[in-house]
Design a protein around this nucleic acid. Structure first.
Lengths: 207, 207
DNA sequence: TATTGTTATACTCTATAACTATA
DNA sequence: TATAGTTATAGAGTATAACAATA
């Protein structure tokens, strides 16, 4: 993450002769990516940077980073969860989760409450302010989602979510469980028609 | 990146009662991801972490990080390129590219030569040692690629590459040019059969 | 004046060890 | 002894500013 300038990859040739390397005006300096162009890891990182750049731009007006947004969503959806549960769900080490949560609590969006029964743990809840903000954020998120998926279309987006889910579940057996009640099948089926279309949801908001 | 432990997402329940939260043995603490489960950004990052974790594990025996591998591939494919051309192709700031290149040159894998015609720039080439290593690395990479794509199958992999390429090209107009000679169409077509199948290549090695 | 490679530096994200207070 | 939250710290990756040599 932390990538605000995804632009520019090879030498370009759009603007009027900035580089100088391509004398006449041909294709010239088209760098060949070789096997990187067929590497899921390389392309995943590229795509992730492009998407995060848009996210960061979009959420800058609310001064929110992706991780902060994720916490708000999880806590909003699962009130009363312990810190370690939220941090695990987001693959964030509990030690790094502390300052992250602090930033949200300092802004009055999330509250740490004493968990009943175990005085070691903190139960997390959105404040009224946090809940109100989250509602707005969902609109921002839907815009962002639509924008970044525009090049592949809604059908492409559905496929992409499916494929990514399958890949994640494969590399992390734990993720296979999430898919159960979520509606997303484990996505073991790769190609074509993949169980009709009545799946996810047109990116509108939460369910 | 830099993520060696992708495991564990929710609370799990696999091992014999480690958590303690789920008393009996039910589904119990399944954290709901809410809209994150339909967020391409969130899932892209997850998938990228899973894939990079496998890459890092795989290439640890050669003590190579993803970025270092990328440089070797680009330089091997495009001998004589200037530093700034390589760093641009990889979306790495030229200022951060210096120590990265140093690490490869110190190991005798890449050589900085004086570029003919412009004494400011350095032309990059693989050494014999670097070229030999790269050949081995391609086998390692093919294994890695096969492994991480196993859950989605080869057809799923082809689709994924297509979708990611389209998304990248959309967020970065420059990338649209790469796709030309590469064989990958701009991937504006999202769903189903998408121009047959004779595309990429069974993950064997370079072309 | 602009570009290439470089140094120095800072900020974010991530990772490990160790402490505390509970259990 | 083990767990939840916390602190301190170190390491990657990434960002900007400024400089020397060259164009």
């Amino acid at each position: 993450m932390t990538d605000a300038v995804p632009k520019r990859t090879t030498g370009r040739r759009g603007a009027a002769s900035v580089a100088g390397a391509d004398a006449a005006g041909e294709i010239a300096d088209a760098v060949e990516l070789g096997l990187l162009g067929e590497s899921v890891g390389f392309l995943l990182k590229r795509a992730q940077m492009v998407v995060f750049a848009d996210f960061i731009r979009t959420f800058a007006e609310r001064d929110l980073r992706p991780a902060q947004f994720s916490v708000l969503v999880i806590v909003g959806r699962n009130p009363g969860l312990k810190q370690s549960q939220v941090s695990n769900a987001l693959n964030i080490k509990r030690t790094n989760f502390v300052p992250l949560l602090d930033s949200l609590e300092d802004r009055g969006l999330v509250k740490r409450k004493l968990a009943a029964g175990d005085r070691r743990s903190h139960a997390l809840h959105l404040t009224a302010k946090g809940a109100a903000l989250l509602t707005e954020l969902q609109r921002l998120w839907a815009e962002h989602e639509r924008r970044v998926c525009e090049p592949i279309g809604e059908a492409g987006r559905e496929q992409l979510l499916q494929l990514l889910g399958g890949m994640i579940a494969g590399g992390d057996p734990a993720a296979a469980e999430e898919a159960e009640d979520a509606d997303l099948p484990p996505a073991k089926a790769p190609p074509g028609k993949g169980r009709g279309k009545g799946r996810g949801k047109p990116p509108a908001a939460e369910r």
